[in-house]
Simulated scan of single mutants.
Amino acid sequence: MSTPHPFGLTGKHVLVTGAGGGLGRAIVAAFVSAGAYVTGADQDITQLAGLPLHHRLAFDITDAAACRRAIDELEVLGATPDVLVNNAGASRADSLASLEEEGMWDAELATNLTGAYHVTAPVTKVWDKAGRGGTIVFTSSVNALTHYGNPAYAAAKAGLIAYARALAVELGCKGVRANVVAPGSVRTAAWAHRDPAVLDAAARHYPIGRILAPEDVANTIVFLASPLAAGITGAVIPVDGGLMAGNMPFVRDIIGSDI
């Protein structure tokens, strides 16, 4: 007889959006290790190759009808998720000036905020119809908490926090929990368009002395999705290596280099 995983997720069904990315793949692996069945969703189904998934879905989260069809498909298969991880997101507008490109603001909000709503709304409706609850975790960013660039992305990620709190408050009595992780810089392919030296330079701003690994964030998401976090809802958990705790380069420059 197998021993249930201590996180209490054995046999639970988890839907992860953006599952084919570097962070998404780590999230899938973490839930599988916790005994869960995982459905992965991405815009391009080829991005899901090699993942240990029970179901694979390809849809554009900015397309509300496509999202509803995907959730309906899972319901027909008897695979309505117990846990929804809204992980999909992207940004290319680094500054206010870059937002002057036609449609850039709308595109970033559609991908990083409205898309999460398009997936979440039909899932919560299925839960309500079945008279059950579930758990939702959103991948936001430290950009939502203070400014590190990418202004439209930051606005969208801040919107996720407000949306999660609305879900926690209004649907809590129906057994729904909604929480947010706010990662700092994570070493994934999302940084591939930048000079590799940028991440190394960024590490000096993190008190733990390194950029985050995808597993750092994934493990926190699994915890928030698990019964171990049954009393946590509407919360925002920075997974940021201490970045939000204070400015270590400032401390070194002002107080002394021996710190």
Results as ranks from 00 to 15, higher is better:
G209R: 12
G246T: 09
P227H: 12
D258G: 09
A203H: 01
V236Q: 10
R204K: 01
G175C: 05
A178T: 01
L243Y: 15
G184T: 00
A203L: 05
H193S: 10
G241R: 00
G175W: 05
G246F: 00
I208K: 13
A192K: 09
I211M: 15
D253G: 13
S257V: 08
W191G: 06
A218I: 03
A178F: 09
G246V: 04
A245K: 00
R204D: 02
R210I: 08
I254D: 15
P227V: 09
I255S: 14
S226N: 10
G175D: 12
P183E: 04
I255F: 14
A189F: 09
A202F: 04
V236T: 13
V222M: 01
F250C: 08
V186W: 07
E215V: 13
R210D: 01
D258L: 13
A230Y: 14
A225V: 08
P196N: 07
N179Q: 01
A189W: 12
V239I: 09
N219M: 02
G246M: 06
L228I: 03
P238N: 02
V176E: 15
I255V: 13
A182T: 10
R252V: 05
P238I: 06
Y206K: 02
T233M: 03
P214V: 08
S257G: 10
I221H: 09
